[in-house]
């Protein structure tokens, strides 16, 4: 990739050139994503442990998740990653000629993120109405009441934390879109767009794994 140094953009003092600065940013964000893997990993370990201990209970509980909303949300996130990838690619190939495409792509990404959150909110509301929120109001058959609460605790915490990450992502993507519109970037300097893109794709990957673990359990023997 050519290192075209835009006249107005110079690397920070501790760097020799923009390429080094970009490499450093790339490595930095991947190290950060590794920490996120371990962060969600603690929850996934808890899920694995309890699914092993209460296989039947988890299967029964998971049948009450909203497959249609979950699947649509998965499609929404995958599409948002598509839009994000287009935005990053367009920016790196030629920011000056593609600026409007980039802004459009990033805006679509953020909008899809908002749509995801809206559907998630609707889903939470439905689950609340069906008394699937763990606690004294939890309504389930006596046999699996305990494990079902464990399942739904993990469901709300996993998707809730994921939702927090999506929210932060929407904010980041929106900011970067606004900065692009203002002309803060050039073909030689698209690093923030790339970084935010990596974060967004990672949030998508987390959901890719959550989807089968939450929504696809016990569907074959419903």
């Amino acid at each position: 990739m050519p290192d075209i140094r835009a006249p107005a953009i110079r690397p920070a003092l501790q760097f020799a050139d923009l390429t080094q600065e970009r490499d450093v940013a790339t490595i930095g964000i991947w190290v950060f994503l590794a920490t996120e893997m371990l962060f969600f990993g603690g929850l996934l370990t808890s899920y694995a442990v309890y699914r092993h201990m209460f296989a039947d209970g988890f299967t029964e509980a998971a049948r009450h998740t909203k497959l249609i909303i979950g699947t649509i949300n998965t499609a929404i996130l995958l599409t948002s990653s598509f839009a994000m990838a287009v935005g990053v690619e367009a920016a790196e190939r030629g920011m000056e000629e593609n600026r409007r495409i980039v802004v459009f792509a990033l805006t679509v990404t953020a909008a899809l993120g908002v749509a995801f959150l809206a559907l998630k909110g609707l889903e939470y509301y439905q689950e609340y109405q069906e008394h699937l929120v763990p606690g004294s109001g939890f309504a389930f058959g006596p046999r699996y009441r305990g494990p079902a609460q464990l399942f739904f605790l993990l469901y709300f915490i996993l998707t809730g934390l994921h939702g927090v990450h999506v929210t932060i992502g929407v904010g980041l993507v929106g900011s970067v879109a606004a900065m692009t519109r203002r002309g803060a970037f050039s073909t030689g300097y698209t690093t923030p767009i790339m970084i935010v893109g990596l974060y967004w794709h990672f949030v998508d990957v987390v959901w890719i794994f959550l989807y089968p673990l939450i929504y696809l359990v016990g569907r074959s023997t419903q």
């Binding site: 371990l38 929850l43 442990v49 309890y50 763990p134 305990g146 494990p147 609460q149 464990l150």
Partner: peptide, 28 residues
């Protein structure tokens, strides 16, 4: 990060009075 999630899970259990370490629902 694993400490972070662990403490978060504990805080949730303490605040909401139910959590994944609660033996009464099968927690370990």
């Amino acid at each position: 990060p694993v400490l972070a999630i662990t403490l978060l899970l504990l805080a949730i259990e303490r605040i909401f009075r139910i959590g994944i370490f609660d033996p009464s629902i099968g927690g370990d």
